[in-house]
Structure formats: C-alpha cells, structure tokens
C-alpha cells in the first residue's frame, strides 16, 4: 500500500458529480461501445456476414434464376436488400439484450454493481437499449452499403435507413429485455430465438411479400413487430409513401413505446428481486 501517493484528506474530498439523465445514459452507452470496440471484428462479423449470406443466396442466387420481375415494383435484389437491413438491425439488438444482458445479470452481476451507484434502474436499461439502437443504425447502414455494391438500387430517401435501423434496434432490444426478465437459465433463449426471432426474420416480408394472399394474413403480418420496419425501409427504396407507410410508422413507434415500458417494468422487478 503506497499511501504517500494520495495526499491525506484527498481521498474523501468531495467531487463535483453529474447526476443528470444525459450523463448517466451516456455512461451506460459508452461502457457498451467501449467493450464492443475491443472485440469489434469478432462481434460484428457474424451478424453482418449472416445477413449477406442470405442476401447472396436468395437475392443474387435464387432470385436471378426465378425472379426476373421482383416484387412491389422493386427488382428482387433491391427488394431483399431493403428487408435484410431491417432484419439485421433486429438481430444485432435482440442478441445483445438476451444472451448479453443475461450474462451481465446472472453471471457477472453487473446490474448489482450499478445499483450501488446513483443510476436509476431505467437509466441502466435505457442506456443499454440506446446502445442496441446505435448498433441497429450502424448494421443496417453497413448492409445498405454492401448490398448497394452488390446491385441493389437505393434512392436518396435511403439516407434515412440509419434512422429505421436505430428505432428497430431500440424496439428489439426492448423485446429482448422483456424476454430476459422471464428467463431462468440461459438455455431457455433458444426457444425464443428459434421459436420467434427466426420465423419473424423469414416471414415479415423480408424475402417475399406476405401480404396480399389472405385478408387475415395481412393483419397478422402487419402485427409482427418487424413488418413495420421492413415496410418503411421498402418505402424508402421505392421513394413512394402510401397510407400503409403511415400505419407502419405509427405501429413501429407504438410497439417501441409499448416494449420500452414493458422492458423497464419487468427489468426493475427482476433487478430489485
């Protein structure tokens, strides 16, 4: 113990503290950015590659044989690109707040440590969801750039893609937190990922139009929380906005608000035991 390094009295001298919401959220967000940056290549490569495999196999591979016309007035490559970029925002966010959050909650007990600070419980989790939203924005932008290089044709409206990725990331981070709040052992997540996330990824209009077959299916499809994101992303690629686009926007924001509220409520109960 080297006590000379700190002058007597200095250890306990009062320090100015920033206890405002913005700085608290920034602290939590920055923690995740810092950790993520360390393992950037290992963390970011699989989800980006995964989306691109789908894109290559389905849009470029299968699509070039079977689908000369595309859907929704878009060439098929562009159609799939617009869907996959929203899907990748969902994937990266939902994995962070399921497996990642569970490890911090149960194994690393990080939230216990945070409870010892002035951070509000809401700030702990909103900061985390904002990080996922940031990831969603970055991932969807990366997918946009690469698919464009591979032949998708964006419009100027596609500059708004990061925004859709951001909100989609936030929404699915919240969904992940709600699920995590119920989970007892980490293996339970496989029910959620294969039972919910995978079908959502495939059947929200990512690769083919779900709507237009049956009326009831239209309603169901629109209610799946990823569909509004894909609908909006597609509107950007088409540069055409219809009443359905408006409904999608309202649904996306509505779902985000709902799951934000649920996630905080559930996680508060879980953390305070």
């Amino acid at each position: 113990m080297n006590e000379s390094s700190v002058p007597p009295g200095e250890l306990c001298a009062p320090l100015p503290l920033r206890t405002g919401r913005c700085w608290s959220l920034f602290g939590v967000w920055y923690r995740h950015v810092r950790v993520y940056r360390k393992t950037l290549l290992a963390n970011a490569t699989p989800p980006v590659l995964e989306s691109l495999y789908f894109f290559a196999a389905v849009a470029i591979g299968l699509g070039s044989y079977l689908l000369k016309t595309g859907f929704d007035g878009l060439p098929y490559v562009t159609y799939v690109a617009s869907g996959v970029l929203a899907g990748s925002a969902m994937m990266c966010a939902v994995f962070e707040t399921t497996y990642g959050t569970f490890v911090r909650l149960v194994y690393q007990r990080s939230y216990d440590a945070m409870l010892g600070t002035h951070l509000r419980i809401s700030e702990m989790f909103v900061g985390e969801m904002l990080f996922c939203a940031t990831k969603g924005a970055v991932f969807s932008t990366i997918v946009l750039l690469i698919t464009t290089l591979c032949g998708a044709r964006p419009t100027i409206w596609c500059l708004l893609v990061p925004l859709i990725g951001f909100v989609t990331g936030y929404l699915w981070a919240a969904v992940g937190l709600v699920v995590t709040s119920y989970v007892k052992t980490i293996n339970n997540f496989s029910f959620f990922t294969t039972g919910i996330i995978t079908p959502v990824f495939y059947f929200s209009g990512t690769f083919f139009p779900v709507r237009g077959h049956y009326a009831w299916l239209d309603v169901v499809a629109m209610l799946v929380p990823l569909t509004p994101s894909i609908e909006l992303s597609r509107a950007l690629f088409k540069a055409s906005f219809t009443p359905v686009t408006g409904i999608a926007l309202v649904l996306l924001l509505g779902y985000t608000a709902l799951f934000h509220w649920l996630a905080l409520r559930r996680m508060t109960a879980r953390v305070l035991r």
């Binding site: 320090l15 100015p16 503290l17 920033r18 206890t19 700085w23 608290s24 920034f26 602290g27 939590v28 920055y30 923690r31 810092r34 950790v35 360390k38 690393q108 007990r109 990080s110 216990d112 440590a113 945070m114 010892g116 600070t117 002035h118 951070l119």
Partner: peptide
C-alpha cells in the same frame, strides 16, 4: 460507495477501465 460481497467487477474490461466506467456511472467527468 458499496463494496459487494461477491465479485461483480465488469469482466469485459481491464482494471483501469473498470474504474473509469464505474466513475462515469457515478457521475464524474
């Protein structure tokens, strides 16, 4: 300030980073 019974240091960070991040949580610049 709380010193917990079990180790709940952030294992994704090194010692100095652990303190830096926790200090941000505490509201230091």
């Amino acid at each position: 300030g709380v010193v917990f019974q079990e180790n709940n240091l952030d294992e994704d960070l090194n010692a100095a980073e652990c303190l830096l991040i926790h200090a941000l949580y505490c509201g230091l610049s």
